[in-house]
């Protein structure tokens, strides 16, 4: 089961689909296939139904948060210094656009092979954090996609019942995101150290126990 061949097969049968192989450097060698969100459902159907693949069992669905990162690159700029034009090296900092990712681990119960790792990416982390739901293809994605919606805030279009699953309905944050700030309940920390110690101090100074 070669990822390259599967990729070309998908490209042949699902028209207009952008695919990219994401290599995995670890010894597990579980490389993944990044699928364009617009054609994801068609790709998923193909993977499930193609007679020699038959990925009929979607085992694990999860989200990953990749916040925007600061990329610093060095560029040479011409500047007038002391009346003379000189070439000066400057570092320019740009913000890469963060995104959220949904990862699907597929296995085949019929052919007993796997895992096949499928990745979908949202355009950004805020307003356009939308992905198509793969629940119509694999029922097992239903509750796991709800969990991603709850904890990461990815909206799955076409999901039959997209509600919060673990946190209560009135909750507003998405706690598994990396920039989530937890509620301040550091009244009493008997063995506080490091980060917890700082938070406990902030709490004591702010509230005054």
């Amino acid at each position: 089961m070669n990822l390259e061949t599967i990729k070309s097969e998908i490209e042949a049968s699902v028209s207009g689909c952008r695919l990219e192989i994401i290599p995995n450097a670890s010894p597990s060698e579980q490389h993944s296939l990044l699928v364009d969100a617009a054609r994801a459902v068609a790709v998923a159907r193909f993977l499930r139904d193609a007679a020699h693949l038959r990925f009929d069992f979607c085992s694990n669905v999860t989200g990953v948060d990749w916040p925007s990162k600061e990329i610093s690159e060095k560029i040479k700029v011409k500047k007038i210094l002391d009346g003379v034009e000189q070439e000066v090296e400057e570092t320019r900092k740009t913000q890469s656009l963060g995104y959220l990712e949904a990862v699907y681990h597929l296995y085949s119960v019929e052919k007993k092979h796997g895992p096949f790792v499928l990745r979908l990416r949202t355009e950004d982390r805020e307003n356009r954090a939308h992905l198509p739901s793969l629940t119509p293809v694999w029922r097992s994605a239903e509750f796991q996609e709800r969990e991603i919606f709850d904890l990461f805030g990815i909206h799955f279009d076409g999901h039959p019942d997209l509600r919060r699953i673990l946190m209560w309905d009135e909750f507003e944050d998405h706690p598994m995101r990396r920039d989530y700030v937890e509620p301040n309940d550091y009244e009493y920390e008997p063995t506080a150290h490091d980060e917890v110690l700082q938070k406990a101090k902030q709490h004591q100074n702010g509230v005054g126990c």
């Binding site: 406990a200 101090k201 902030q202 004591q204």
Partner: peptide
């Protein structure tokens, strides 16, 4: 509980 770092004033 009085939280303090030994010798240092890190008020937080």
């Amino acid at each position: 509980v009085h939280i303090s770092l030994a010798g240092k004033d890190e008020s937080g």
